[in-house]
Design a protein around this nucleic acid. Structure first.
Lengths: 233, 233
DNA sequence: GGATCAAAACTTGGATACAAGTTTTGCAGT
DNA sequence: ACTGCAAAACTTGTATCCAAGTTTTGATCC
């Protein structure tokens, strides 16, 4: 087996090494630089990061806990392949939590309500103004922020934290399916519809649009699957 | 500081040590044998389980990931105190996910639907038949199973897995608030009401009763707080 | 050339040793 | 008895070494 080249194994000295390695590997997995099925070697990673196996090992067990890695004892550590049932589960959970957050919006004080609405509007404007070479990354960041704001209706940190921890497997797909400008316009339109539903206190409309928006990824993952069948179970 | 005595640090040889230690410590935390604020020493635990610090350390980092432990570098590892906002977040997320699952029940095939209803009925009967010295533990197990069945309406494993991973901080309270038989009867009545709503396809009733049931713990945690104020932030 | 089998080189799991920093402790001085 | 300070005993973070098992490799035999 040929050695695989991961881009920039840089390391900072003033933070715990294990956590840095974890974050770095996690982001590499999400953008599919480390592709499903690949094998990671603790020794190899330790050499690249210029640390011992101990912090690498800790990072890998955390990735396994997140469902992004599968550690087979005495055999190797492999980037988990994408599971369609898992994708469906993520959509379900996101839809459940964000819908509940939208339901909470009606019982918010007018001040708090309009403040959040303001945030969503400015985010939406930023989405519409997007252009340039880093368009895809920029949109994903704004999209994350849009849904984070939705969760803020719950006035609690846990909902969004939970979505973030679960979202990684969905992001691996999203990074590929968001390409054409036309698709991007559709996504922005969906966001606008959700916002309009919330603003007019039409939660049925808002939740309906949100569900359609969140489940849309399930109708696009087959695009990725067609070209990379070996990335899936 | 006096040495604290944890009950039975037994260990099995045919499973990974780290996972066993993790499970054991986690259950000890949930039943409050390891109380909020207590300090755990890696060396001490390693001696008790008769292993090296390596698997102990892995177990502790996983407990930290679950929010049950706080590892302060070069200072010690402490059982996390109970956070009321965190409790509220757990209630919110559980309510969101289980409500969404109940919503899915209306679009299930009659065969699948009646099969799940059967399971809930037999579980409810078991709850009503409870008695004996291990009543509290038995009820908590049946209660968990009841809500797991609710999640099965989603026909996906992730929702219940996620609830399980988040539920630990709620269980620490539940173990204390479920004491009197009268309270237990109230909880069983709530379960029955939820089931009745689902069976009659009255999802509004079911979701309403479920929300009331899940949020009930927020009105009882003050009982625990009154006697153990130092267990909370 | 192809198949078989043994040895070597890999994998992770665990134990031990050392490093850096914090807390406690105990002795000395008042 | 009380205060102050230094040393010892703790804490976790990391490195290194050994063990057990799997995979690959390469030589040998047909």
């Amino acid at each position: 087996m040929k050695k695989l080249e991961i881009p920039t194994p840089k390391l900072n000295a003033e933070a715990p090494a294990a956590r840095q390695i974890y974050s770095h590997l996690r982001s590499l997995i999400i953008v599919n630089t480390l592709q499903p099925g690949m094998r990671l070697s603790e020794n190899d990673l330790a050499a690249r990061y210029e640390v011992s196996r101990q912090p690498v090992r800790e990072a890998l067990t955390h990735l396994e806990h997140d469902g992004l890695l599968e550690i087979k004892p005495q055999r190797g550590s492999f980037i988990r392949k994408i599971s369609v049932p898992n994708l469906e589960g993520i959509c379900f959970v996101r839809c459940a939590i964000e819908s509940q957050a939208i339901l909470e919006s009606v019982s918010l004080s007018p001040q708090d309500f309009s403040l959040i609405i303001k945030g969503m509007e400015s985010n939406l404007n930023a989405q519409r103004a997007l252009s340039g070479p880093t368009l895809r990354e920029d949109f994903l960041r704004l999209d994350d922020d849009f849904h984070r704001i939705i969760c803020s209706f719950a006035r609690n940190d846990l909902p969004w934290e939970l979505i973030q921890s679960v979202k990684a497997n969905m992001d691996r797909i999203r990074f590929f399916t968001i390409e054409g400008v036309s698709r991007l316009e559709n996504l922005i339109a969906a966001h606008a519809a959700v916002l309009e539903g919330i603003r007019t206190h039409n939660v049925f409309l808002a939740v309906g649009m949100l569900k359609e928006h969140l489940y849309e990824i399930l109708s696009t993952y087959k695009m990725v699957m067609a070209e990379n069948a070996d990335w899936f179970d």
